[in-house]
Structures are given as structure tokens and as C-alpha cells.
């Protein structure tokens, strides 16, 4: 397989995952805004921070209104992580590697691009937001699901999945990091009903508020939620689960090519840290420090993979 093809597959799924995560973030913001018991009121600032987009946003808009934020995260092409930009990038990559995709996968991607492009041709009316966000989640799920259901389990599929899980791990880590800081200004808030709502919103943004209840006995609390999103490998958006999958993909590539690279060692060390840590260890290191290190390592792994498999 061409290195450029591996690159295209990897970024196709990364972009799909990013589009989905943007929609989830916005959904969370919408939910927070509509329950409005939060006091501070500026849930949008935290949403933008989670999206890593506050600076770019402030260059385009003055006010944190629902209208501005939604438009920026959904449709703004100057925002490289907006849903439309991500879908566009996913499709460009998909077109580039079209011969490596099953027809079904390509069609699902092309259709996602057409459907979402249509829905977001004009600024989205506030009343239509839930419908549009659902469409983003549905279309991206279709692309991922079609690939899962039709692609040969070859190196191509491994690169696709690497894209998904690297992006997802990055997203979960960012959401957790930003929320921890923004929503928990002081330790005295812990346990208050305000705090509970904020933690709920984190879970909601990764669609895990019910799964949490199935997995933990206790009411929302920072320790269990952090454990859930960082270390619980049964939680499909947790860092631990993502790295379980990344490890699997890299093993497949090792087997296919009979060659281990730096990226294998890097992934091993990240995974080792996730599997031996208890959540108390994480808090001891400092949640923020732990997450910052993780995000940096995750980024480095992405670089190592593109180098090992000659993406460029």
C-alpha cells in the first residue's frame, strides 16, 4: 500500500471522528444552556475551550452567543475543526484513497458530505440544531459502521481505525482537562448540585451519562468519572479503551509487515501507564499534568506512525 494511501485513510477517519466530537460538544452546550441552572452562564466559553477554538473564535466573533458558537463550530470554513471543514477534509482524503475503500464505505462518506453540506448550506436555525446535530452523529456513525461492516481486515483497515482512536483519545483527554479546570474553580464546589451538573455535562458530551450509572454505584463524583473516562477500558471513549484499540491496530501492522517501529514502543509505553495507574495515582500526579502529558504523547505517537509508514 502507498504511504499516501495510509495517510489518507488515517486522516479520513480522524476527520470523521472530529466532526462527530464537535457535534457532541455543541450538543452538550445546548443541553447546558437549556437547563440554565449553572450560575456562571458562560457555558459556551467552556465549550469553545474544549474544542480548542477560543482564540480562533474570538478573531471571528465578539460574543459567546449560541448563534455565533454554533455557526463557528458547525459551518465556519475558516475553522479547520468545524463539522463542515472536517467532513470536507474526510471526503477529500476519502476521494484520494478511494481505491482503498469499499464502494459502500465511499458512498457512505460521499453521502455524509452531501447530506451535511445540504443541511448546513445556510446558517442553522436554533430550532433545527438538534436535528442537524443528530444528522452529524448519524452520518458519521454510518461511515464508521459501513467501513466496519465491509472492509477487509487488512493494513488499510488498521490505518482507518488508528485514525479513529487517536482522534478520540485526544478529544476525551481535552474535554476532561478543560472541564476540570473551568468547571471546578475551587475544591469547595465538589459535591454541590452545581458541580454535579457540570460533571454530568462531561459525561453527556461523550454520550456516557447512562453508561456511568451502569458501571458505578456512586453518584457523579470527580474520582469515578475520571476513572471512567481515563482508565475504564470498557468505556469506548476512554483513553484506556482507545489505547487498547491502538495497540491492536499496531500489532496487526507489525504482523502484516513483520516490522516493529518506534511507534510501537511509544504506544506500549502510553498503554502501560494507563493500565498500571489507579485513579489515585493520576490524582497524585495531578489530573491536569497527567492529561497534558497524555495529549503530548498521543500527538507524538501520531507523528511516529506517519514516519514509520511513510505517510509523506
Amino acid at each position: 500500500m502507498l504511504g499516501r494511501t495510509a495517510n489518507g485513510l488515517f486522516w479520513m477517519n480522524r476527520s470523521i471522528e472530529r466532526a462527530e466530537n464537535m457535534a457532541r460538544l455543541l450538543d452538550t452546550g445546548l443541553h447546558m444552556a437549556s437547563t440554565r441552572a449553572m450560575g456562571s452562564g458562560d457555558e459556551w466559553a467552556s465549550i469553545l475551550m474544549s474544542a480548542g477554538a477560543e482564540k480562533a473564535f474570538s478573531e471571528r466573533h465578539d460574543e459567546h452567543t449560541l448563534e455565533n458558537v454554533a455557526d463557528f463550530l458547525l459551518r465556519d470554513r475558516t475553522n479547520p475543526s468545524s463539522v463542515l471543514s472536517s467532513i470536507e477534509l474526510a471526503r477529500t482524503n476519502g476521494r484520494m484513497v478511494r481505491t482503498a475503500l469499499t464502494r459502500d464505505t465511499w458512498e457512505a462518506l460521499n453521502e455524509a458530505w452531501m447530506v451535511l453540506g445540504d443541511l448546513m448550506k445556510k446558517p442553522v436555525d436554533q430550532r433545527d440544531l438538534p436535528r442537524v446535530l443528530n444528522a452529524v452523529k448519524r452520518e458519521t456513525a454510518l461511515v464508521r459502521g459501513t467501513a466496519h461492516g465491509t472492509m477487509l481486515r487488512s493494513d488499510k483497515f488498521s490505518f482507518l481505525r488508528l485514525g479513529t482512536y487517536l482522534e478520540r483519545a485526544d478529544n476525551t483527554a481535552r474535554i476532561l482537562d478543560v472541564k476540570y479546570y473551568v468547571l471546578l474553580p475551587s475544591v469547595k464546589w465538589v459535591g454541590s448540585s452545581l458541580d454535579n451538573r457540570q460533571w454530568e455535562s462531561i459525561l453527556r458530551s461523550v454520550s456516557a451519562h447512562r453508561a456511568y450509572r451502569w458501571s458505578y454505584d456512586s453518584p457523579y463524583n470527580p474520582t469515578d468519572i475520571s476513572d471512567f473516562l481515563i482508565l475504564n477500558s470498557r468505556m469506548p471513549r476512554s483513553l484506556s479503551h482507545c489505547y487498547k484499540m491502538i495497540d491492536e491496530c499496531l500489532c496487526e501492522l507489525d504482523a502484516a509487515y513483520d516490522n516493529r517501529h518506534d511507534c510501537h514502543n511509544k504506544a506500549d509505553s502510553i498503554r502501560a501507564k494507563l493500565s498500571v495507574s489507579s485513579i489515585d495515582d493520576v490524582f497524585e500526579e495531578g489530573l491536569h499534568e497527567f492529561l497534558v502529558t497524555f495529549i503530548r504523547d498521543n500527538y507524538q505517537l501520531s507523528q511516529d506512525i506517519s514516519e514509520a509508514y511513510r505517510f509523506y
Binding site: 500500500m1 502507498l2 499516501r4 495510509a6 478511494r98 481505491t99 493494513d155 501492522l253 511513510r310
Partner: peptide
């Protein structure tokens, strides 16, 4: 399906950059 950037001259042949 290759692009020019995937190819180069390598040992007197045209070769493509694979994984």
C-alpha cells in the same frame, strides 16, 4: 493509483513509496 509525489527513481527503476 499513484501521484507524482508517490514516485521516484530508485535503483534505476521507477518506484513508489509504500508503507
Amino acid at each position: 493509483l499513484v501521484e507524482g509525489s508517490d514516485l521516484r527513481v530508485h535503483d534505476g527503476k521507477i518506484a513508489m513509496r509504500t508503507t
